[in-house]
């Protein structure tokens, strides 16, 4: 069941000048899955009219904790990143389909994230680890300083890195990383990040014959499948990213 309600911002940590980690407390609905998102209402920002779709970084219903990793992309997200702890934020959640988790214990998933695209991989990694499946993360950013939440990712699984300037791990984009060359040991690849990177990862996965899911971030208005603004071309025609995604199997896309 989707809900729309207020959450209390309990902590707001500026990870870098471009990225902040926001922790909220509140009553969470049942069944939030990795890869789903929240539609966040931005109050008191005169230039922001619509909600902002933000990937759920982590959710724990038992403690009522919800985390969002936010990139400053414009007035709306700037306003969100500048909010003081103690503020109340209205959110609609959980929205979208989420990643499909593998059943077999012997799975070797590779979780590829670029920039703020690492956000949903935290909850996904934790759920995989909870099922006894050790994830490998391939995390990419412009520089070593912008590799987000590295220590927490290292606590869940193995971590490989790629940076545009070579300041951490391999130099280059995520899809150029050696982990994606050849067939590799991977049983499935999950990916979230900038479109060119995801297309590169999807191409590598196809070449290696490995299943691959990507999380898209098309611009949205409603988040509920009503306005038909966020559509992606698929093999079934135009579909809403907010309801039939944001996670797609690459075989369903026309990339």
């Amino acid at each position: 069941m989707k809900v729309v309600r207020d959450f209390l911002l309990s902590a707001n940590v500026e990870l870098t000048p471009r990225f902040s980690l926001l922790t909220f407390q509140g009553e969470l609905p049942e069944g939030i899955r990795p890869g789903q998102f929240a539609q966040v209402r931005i109050d008191d920002s005169p230039t922001t009219f619509l909600r902002r779709p933000i990937s759920i970084n982590y959710a724990d219903r038992d403690t009522g904790t919800l985390r969002l990793l936010v990139r400053r992309a414009g007035d709306g997200t700037n306003h969100l990143c500048d909010m003081e702890p103690g503020s109340s934020v209205n959110m609609m959640l959980p929205l979208g389909n989420g990643f499909r988790l593998p059943d077999q214990e012997g799975s070797r998933p590779l979780l590829v994230g670029g920039g703020v695209g690492v956000a949903p991989l935290m909850m996904l990694g934790k759920e995989l680890a909870g099922k006894g499946i050790r994830p490998t993360f391939l995390l990419a950013a412009r520089t070593a300083d912008e590799l987000l939440l590295l220590d927490e990712f290292r606590g869940i699984g193995d971590v490989l890195t790629a940076t545009d300037d070579g300041s951490s791990g391999e130099k280059g984009f995520a899809h150029q990383h050696s982990a994606l060359s050849g067939s590799g040991p991977w049983s499935i690849i999950y990916c979230c990040g900038p479109a060119p990177m995801m297309k590169g990862v999807a191409a590598a996965a196809k070449k290696a014959g490995v299943a691959c899911e990507v999380s898209l971030e098309n611009m949205m208005a409603c988040g509920l499948g009503a306005c038909l603004c966020c559509v992606e071309k698929t093999v079934r025609g135009n579909v809403c990213v907010c309801t039939e995604g944001p996670v797609f199997n690459i075989n369903d896309l026309t990339w």
Binding site: F49, N218, M219, M220, A221, C227, E232, K233, N238
Partner: peptide
């Protein structure tokens, strides 16, 4: 796509 753009007090 793109089919939507946010504008002042509207879309």
């Amino acid at each position: 796509y793109p089919r939507m753009a946010e504008t002042p007090s509207g879309m």
